[in-house]
Design a protein around this nucleic acid. Structure first.
Lengths: 185, 185
DNA sequence: ACCTGAACACCGTTCAAGT
DNA sequence: ACCTGAACACCGTTCAAGT
C-alpha cells in the first residue's frame, strides 16, 4: 500500500512507513486525530513525526497521496473505454464513493479545492476534470465554455453528503441535476 | 445590532452583549479566534464566556443568528416583489455576498448544511430554499421534483469561492450553470 | 543522519471560591 | 445569580541532547 521512499536510512524508512500506516488507521477512525497521538501509536517521538512530515497537512497529504493519484489517472482510462458522458459520470461516482469511505480524504479535497494554494492536490484534480470536460465538449455532449475549475468546485457536494448509506440515491439525483446544466442542447 | 436578552441581571446582560460585540470583530478578523482570547478581549473570565455560550459553536451561532434570520426572511420578500426565477437568483446573490464578507458565517453554514444535526440553522435555511423552489415550480420556471435540501447542499459552492474579489464573475457563471439544470424545458 | 522526549506556548473547558 | 481565575488535560510544534 505504501510506496517505499528511497535514499533514507533504513530506520528512517521504517519509521516513515510505520507512521503512514498508523496515521491511515487513525484518520479513518477520526479525521481529527492528533499529531502526538499518531506519534505515540507509531512508537516514535513527536520530533520524528515532524521530521518526516513538517506539518499536519503534510501528513494527511502523505496518507492520501496514493488515493488521489488513483483517482486522477482513472479519468483517461474511463474516457478510453466509455462514451464521454458515461466516463464523466463514472468518474463522479468514484469521487462520491471516496467521500463515503475515506473521511480524511474529503478533508484533503476540501482544503485543496477551497483554496488552490494546495496545488499539489488541486492541479492534478483540476487536470482530471479538465480532461473529462474536454472529451465531452469535443463529442458535442457538453456545451462549450464549461470551466473545469468551476465544475470541480461545484462537485464538492459529492464529498459533503453525510450518511450517504441512508440516502444512496441522493448523489445520483444531484449529479443528474448538474449534468442537465452541462448538456448541450 | 445585538438584540438584548431579557430576564438577565444587568451585569450579565452587559457581559453578554460585550462578548457578542468582540466576538463579531474577532471572527471577522480570524474565524479561528480562540475562546480564551475572546474572553480576554471582552474583559471577562473564560467561565463567564462559557456560562453564556456553552460551546464554541454556541458562540458562533450567537454572533451570526441575526444574519441568518435576515437571509431567511428575505426569501418571501423577494418572491413577493419579483418574478420567481429572478427572486431565486437575487437570493443566491445575497448568499454569495455573505460568503464574501462574513468569513465566520460561512463556517456556520458549512457545518449546518454538511450535517443537519445543526437544525437551528439548517431548518430555516432549507425552508427558505424550499419556498423559492416551490414558487419557481408553480410558475413553471423550474421542472418538478427539485429537492430543496439537495439544492441547498449544491449551493454550498457560493460560500466556498475564495478571493471572489479577484474573480467576481465566477459565482455568476456557476449560478448560470446550476440554473440551467433547474429550468423546465 | 536520525531519533528522543522534555519543554513551550498555547487550546477548550471546568469548577471551587467568591460577591 | 453571576463572576473570577486557577487548574486540567490536552494540543501542535521545537530543539537540545543523545546515538
Amino acid at each position: 500500500v505504501t510506496e517505499p521512499k528511497d535514499g533514507l536510512r533504513s530506520d528512517a524508512r521504517a519509521n516513515r512507513e510505520k507512521i503512514l500506516d498508523v496515521a491511515r488507521d487513525a484518520f479513518a477512525r477520526d479525521p481529527q486525530a492528533s499529531m502526538n497521538s499518531i506519534a505515540s501509536l507509531a512508537g516514535v517521538g513527536p520530533g520524528t513525526l515532524y521530521r518526516h512530515f513538517p506539518s499536519r497537512e503534510a501528513l494527511i497529504l502523505g496518507v492520501y497521496r496514493h488515493e488521489i493519484e488513483v483517482l486522477v489517472t482513472l479519468a483517461p482510462k474511463l474516457t478510453a473505454r466509455h462514451p464521454p458522458m458515461k466516463a464523466f459520470r463514472l468518474w463522479c461516482d468514484r469521487l462520491a464513493s471516496y467521500g463515503r469511505v475515506k473521511h480524511g480524504l474529503t478533508d484533503v479535497l476540501h482544503s485543496a479545492v477551497a483554496d488552490p494554494v494546495h496545488a499539489e492536490v488541486y492541479a492534478p484534480m483540476a487536470g482530471a476534470v479538465g480532461h473529462l470536460v474536454q472529451t465531452c465538449e469535443e463529442a458535442g455532449a457538453f456545451r462549450r465554455g464549461i470551466d473545469a475549475e468551476d465544475l470541480l468546485l461545484l462537485l464538492g457536494f459529492l464529498w459533503r453528503i453525510k450518511d450517504s448509506g441512508a440516502n444512496p440515491a441522493r448523489a445520483e439525483r444531484m449529479l443528474d441535476l448538474v449534468m442537465k446544466g452541462l448538456e448541450a442542447r
